[in-house]
Structure formats: C-alpha cells, structure tokens
C-alpha cells in the first residue's frame, strides 16, 4: 500500500518534470520559429533574446523552488495548517515555504540553463560581465521571491488572491522573456520604478551583451540588480509582517 502510493507519486513526479521541460521548450521554440520570419526583435538577435529568456527563467525557477509553495497560503489558512505552524518555534515564512519542497521547477532550471548557456557562448566575457551575470541571477531570483511573497500576503486579507499573484510573477516572467525594447517607454518605466522586473534581466543583460540602452536610462542601472533584489527582500519582510498581523484565522 505504502510502496504503491510512493511509486505513483514517483511516476507522477517524473511525468511532471518531463512535461515541464517539454512545455518550457515549446515556449522557447515558439520564439525560435518567430525568428525565421523576422531578423531581430526590437533590434535584438535570437541569441540575445535567448539570453534574456534564459536569465529571467532561471530567476523565476529558483524563486519558485524556494518560495513557490506560498501560493498555497490561502489553502493553509482555510485548512487551519497555518495556526499549527504559528505555534512552532520556527519562522513562519520558512515553514510555509518548506511545507512541501517543490522540485517541480528543476526541469525549468535545466532548460533555462541550457538556453542561457547556448546564448552565453556568443558573449565576449570579461570579469566584470561575469560579476554582473552573477548579480543578475541572484538579484533576479530575489526580485521574483519578493513578488511571490508580497502578493501572497494578499491572501491574509482575502482568501483568494492566487490568480492575481500569478499575473505578476508568471506574467512578469513572460514580459521579460522579450527585449523590453519592443515595449513603449511607459511600460519600461513601470517595470523599472513600480514593479522592478526590468532588473531581473533587462538592465544587466544590456551590460553583458554590450548593448546601448534604447531608452537612455542611466548606465549604472545595469549594475543594480543585486541592490534592487536586496531592497525588495527588505520591503518584503515588512509586508509579510503586516500580513501576519492581519491574519484572521478561521473559526474552529
């Protein structure tokens, strides 16, 4: 009985992993096919777009792996699991996120690493560019983590906010898969100052790829990913604490 239960689980795990890989790959193949009819997207070549695609994908996948379980916060609240976690001597956020460790994003990390790796072959690497790359991936994951957690906090106030949150995380991922050059300046400004997704890949990638900023934003923005990521995480702690203090529990 036990063995069978875990076997089914294992099979479904592999199926999920493979499916995730295929879906992700199809996603990228879509862009690739697009490049058969166009030569550049907003002035960016296929390799450059692949670099952007991979970078944001890695950021999101790592964030999803670390804090992705938080999208089930609403369910934990309804089931009363959160009450149980709150009376244990471990930080609540850590418990919520580790409730079920999500390896499901492994396939996505793998895929995005392959895509980024391929695109990186054509980058002229310098120590500074490698440094910016490291900052980009860490900062990107931090930014996505923050957005995941902050938006999940809505669930402390209203039970359903998952779809709303997904619009920003997965939606944000989709937007940043493309060079922001194809969007109007207002969108780019919003993605810089309001929801700083442009720091997940766009600004650092401009530096790594040696491109000029088509919107003429200050060049030092390109080194800010890690700082923005840290600032977002700091802000997140306040939002989370606010959420917990407004938790209403369930009547039992």
């Amino acid at each position: 009985m036990w063995v069978r239960a875990s076997m089914t689980y294992r099979v479904s795990f592999w199926m999920m992993t493979v499916a995730g890989f295929v879906i992700g790959a199809l996603d990228f193949i879509g862009i690739w096919i697009l490049f058969h009819t166009i030569d550049s997207m907003g002035g960016f070549s296929l390799r450059e777009v692949a670099f952007l695609y991979g970078a944001t994908g890695i950021g999101l996948a790592f964030a999803d792996m670390f804090v992705g379980r938080i999208e089930r916060l609403g369910q934990m609240i309804r089931m009363g699991d959160l009450d149980t976690m709150m009376v244990r001597p471990v930080p609540l956020l850590a418990q919520v996120c580790s409730n079920e460790f999500a390896l499901r994003r492994l396939s996505r990390i793998l895929l995005c690493t392959i895509v980024t790796g391929w695109a990186s072959l054509y980058v002229e690497w310098t120590p500074m560019r490698l440094l910016v790359m490291a900052g980009m991936l860490t900062g990107g994951a931090a930014i996505f983590c923050s957005i995941f957690v902050m938006l999940a906090c809505i669930q402390f106030l209203t039970a359903d906010g998952v779809e709303f949150a997904n619009a920003f995380t997965y939606g944000g991922n989709t937007i940043t898969q493309y060079p922001l050059a194809i969007f109007p300046g207002e969108v780019v400004k919003a993605l810089t100052f309001v929801l700083p997704l442009a720091f997940v890949n766009w600004y650092p990638a401009l530096f790594i790829l040696g491109r000029d900023d088509p919107f003429g934003m200050p060049q030092w923005f390109q080194f800010l990913s890690l700082v923005v990521g840290a600032a977002m995480l700091w802000l997140t702690t306040f939002v989370w604490r606010f959420g917990v203090r407004h938790y209403r529990s369930t009547g039992s």
Partner: peptide, 13 residues
C-alpha cells in the same frame, strides 16, 4: 473561546 486561545498563543493580534 477559540479567539482567546488564538490570542494567547500569538496566532491572532
């Protein structure tokens, strides 16, 4: 009753 217990344990503010 439950609300009180939840406040005593820190679950509710």
């Amino acid at each position: 009753k439950s609300t009180t217990i939840k406040m005593l344990t820190g679950i509710l503010v």
